[in-house]
Design a protein around this nucleic acid. Structure first.
Lengths: 199, 199
DNA sequence: CCGCATCCTCATGGATACTG
DNA sequence: CAGTATCCATGAGGATGCGG
């Protein structure tokens, strides 16, 4: 566990539980879907294995994460508790806040398509239309409502670098986003991408 | 500066800027009001002075905080940039998330009335009525809409420990909160407490 | 393989003293 | 007042080991 701030303040208390390095990123991964230890490692490039184990223990004792036996045999799966899942709202707020940091595009940063599953609803929900930039093979496109066009230099809600499948999914989602609440769902690396509504 | 996660993800990018220990609490203080170095130290019990200096530098280069010359002479004041002030939304979300951690009351935690300036709007805004518990001199009261009564054991939005002046201000705010947006404003330690609307 | 635990090194945080 | 400088304790990061 991390050292407590010792302040009777909601923000400080929250940070006592999820403020340690990697903690909120672990929650982000579990907001995508419940996951095995190995899947968490894959979705959190850069984390040391001992830290992942430590943080999962902390989050478990903190009441944010539950470990449960899944499927066949003794496979362990990590799931957010109902309270832990309520971190979606503030996390979406933090993602929206990051927009100015994202519009410069990815440098040498890693990218995982699954992160879009949390980020896109955060950026696109609650607005009539939003403009998202996509960099594919060096080409910059923008998706705005029903239009997909080359990037014209205007402000973007976010820029994502993605493989072709994700771009197709994002475009499909954006095409029908106005009014409805869309979510791009990605399964696997080259996997099928489909658009889900009213999640 | 802190070590970057190196992930092209909005949450990770946000945490690269404000994820270090103490950073969000410094932002909380500056959401109350612009402040001098000394005032920040007072409002952040437990922070080491070198860390405060480090974090202020980080936040300044990160574009969250600006240092400016205030008033007479060469007095330095720290202010949130417009972008930094937009952290209010996710911070309010994190404060709301902390409710289960607050209802057990303050233990040996420090408490600063000014923290209510950020927390109370976060907990009370957007709802017809909210129930807030107040511990005064060992007595537990609850404020719900227009009623102030002894705590009856029901769920509370938050519990705050406060001096009499703050309680009066909170009650005054709660009494008129339905419909209007209220904010308890505290000045000084024993200072006048008044209720402001439509901030 | 998966799910961690151990060990080691170095960066960061924390407390205190000190300075322009 | 507004920070620096210093020193020590703790935590992060990386490699590796190990039982099921």
């Amino acid at each position: 566990m991390s050292r407590s701030y010792g302040q009777y303040c909601g923000l400080a208390k929250t940070l006592d539980v999820v403020g340690d390095r990697w903690n909120l990123l672990i929650v982000r991964q579990l907001l995508v879907a419940p996951a095995r230890y190995r899947e968490l490692q894959d979705g959190l490039p850069g984390i040391a294995t001992n830290l992942l184990a430590d943080r999962l223990r902390d989050l478990e004792t903190g009441g944010v994460v539950e470990r449960r036996l899944a499927g066949e045999g003794n496979a362990i799966e990590y799931v957010l508790t109902p309270w832990g899942a309520e971190l979606r709202e503030p996390i979406e707020g933090l993602i929206r806040w990051s927009t100015p940091l994202m519009t410069s595009g990815p440098g040498n940063d890693r990218f995982r398509p699954e992160w879009l599953v949390v980020a896109l609803p955060a950026l696109l929900s609650g607005r009539g239309s939003a403009t998202v930039g996509i960099a594919v093979d060096g080409q910059m496109l923008q998706v705005c409502g029903a239009e997909v066009s080359p990037h014209d230099g205007r402000d973007l809600e976010a820029i994502v670098r993605a493989d072709a499948a994700v771009v197709l999914g994002l475009a499909a989602g954006a095409l029908t986003l106005d009014g409805a609440r869309g979510l791009v769902e990605i399964e696997g690396d080259e996997a099928a991408v489909r658009t889900v509504f009213d999640r």
